[in-house]
C-alpha cells in the first residue's frame, strides 16, 4: 500500500466534499493569483529597467563658442572618470543633421533652420556596472560642474522614480506572499477540519478496528497539501492565460520603444517555488487542524 493509495483516498475526500473544497481551492487560487501577478509585473518591469539602463547615456551640452582645443580637454577629463566607457563629440552641424533625419517627414517645417540653433554636445556611454540610477545621477552632477558645460542631461528622474516604484512593487510582492501563506494555512486548516467532522464516524470505526494513526491521518495531511497545490496550479494557469492575452496586445508597442525586448512569464524555478509554497502551506494547514482535533 503505497503513496498512491493515500493520494487516492485524499482525492476521494476532496471529491466527497466537493463544494467546500472548490471554495477553498478558489480562495487559495485568488490569493496566489494576486501574489504571482505582483511578481510577474515586477519581473517584467525589472527587465524594462535593465533594457533602459543599457540604452541610458548622459548628454553634456556645451556652452556656445567653446574652442576645439578646450573640447578635447573636456573629453579627456571625462574619459578619466571610471564610469565612462565612451565619449562622442556631436558638433552643431551633426546635431542639426540628426534632428533633420529624425523629423524628415516634417521636412518643410525645418527649412531655414540654422546649425547655430543647436548646441554642440558630448554623448557619454557608461560602463555596464555603472548603469544604475544612483551612479548616473552622481556622475551627471559631477560633469555639470565642469567649466564650459551648459547642462548634463539624462533620463535620470524618470529612471529613479521607476526604480523606486519597482522596489516598492517587489517588497509588496513579498509582503503579499507572507499574507498569502497565512491565508492558505487558515483556509486549508478549516477545510480539513470540515472533512474531519464529516468523516468522524468513519474515522472512529477505522480506529476501533485497528487502523494506525498514520493510516487515518495521512490522507488528511495530503488533502491539505493537494488543496494548496491545486490552488497554486489554478492561479498560475489563469495568470498564464491572461499573460498570453495581454502580451499579444502589448508586444507591438513594446518593440516600438524597447526593440527586441519581450514580456516574459515566471521562470520554471519561480513556478516550482510557487507550487512548493502552495503544497507546503497546505500541508501545514492539514497538520494544524489535525493537531487541534484531539479526538482523532
Amino acid at each position: 500500500m503505497g503513496a498512491f493509495y493515500f493520494i487516492r483516498r485524499a482525492l476521494r475526500d476532496i471529491k466527497d466534499n466537493g463544494l467546500t473544497h472548490l471554495l477553498s481551492i478558489g480562495t487559495i487560487a485568488i490569493s496566489f493569483f494576486l501574489f504571482a501577478s505582483f511578481l510577474l509585473v515586477s519581473i517584467n518591469f525589472d527587465s524594462f529597467l535593465q533594457a533602459w539602463e543599457k540604452k541610458v547615456q548622459i548628454v553634456l551640452y556645451l556652452k556656445d563658442g567653446v574652442a576645439k582645443k578646450r573640447i578635447l580637454q573636456i573629453e579627456k577629463e571625462i574619459q578619466k572618470q571610471e564610469e565612462v566607457q565612451q565619449v562622442k563629440y556631436i558638433s552643431k552641424r551633426k546635431a542639426m543633421e540628426s534632428f533633420k533625419r529624425d523629423l524628415a517627414p516634417y521636412g518643410g517645417l525645418l527649412e531655414g533652420l540654422k546649425e547655430e540653433v543647436f548646441p554642440a554636445s558630448l554623448e557619454i556611454k557608461l560602463g555596464e556596472p555603472f548603469r544604475t540610477p544612483e551612479r548616473i545621477k552622481a556622475l551627471a552632477a559631477r560633469l555639470n560642474k565642469i567649466k564650459d558645460v551648459e547642462e548634463a542631461q539624462y533620463g535620470g528622474i524618470w529612471l529613479e522614480r521607476f526604480s523606486i516604484f519597482l522596489y516598492i512593487l517587489r517588497w509588496g510582492a513579498w509582503v503579499l506572499g507572507a499574507v498569502l501563506v497565512i491565508i492558505i494555512v487558515t483556509v486549508t486548516a478549516n477545510t480539513v477540519r470540515l472533512t474531519l467532522l464529516n468523516k468522524r464516524a468513519e474515522i472512529e470505526i477505522m480506529k476501533l478496528v485497528g487502523a494506525t494513526d498514520a493510516f487515518v491521518k495521512l490522507p488528511l495531511y495530503l488533502e491539505g497539501g493537494l488543496q494548496g497545490l491545486f490552488g497554486a496550479g489554478v492561479s498560475l494557469l489563469l495568470l498564464f492565460l491572461l499573460f498570453r492575452f495581454f502580451s499579444l496586445k502589448i508586444s507591438p508597442y513594446l518593440s516600438l520603444y524597447f526593440g527586441q525586448l519581450r514580456l516574459s512569464f515566471l521562470s520554471p524555478d519561480l513556478i516550482a517555488g510557487i507550487m512548493g509554497v502552495g503544497l507546503a502551506s497546505g500541508l501545514l494547514g492539514g497538520l494544524l487542524s489535525l493537531q487541534k482535533a484531539a479526538e482523532v
Binding site: 470505526i205 480506529k207 476501533l208 478496528v209 485497528g210 494513526d213
Partner: peptide
Amino acid sequence: IPLLRREVGFVFQDFKLL
C-alpha cells in the same frame, strides 16, 4: 492500541454502519 484492536472484533449496539 491498533495491534490490540486487530485481534478483537466489536459489534456495536447501534451497528455504527456508514
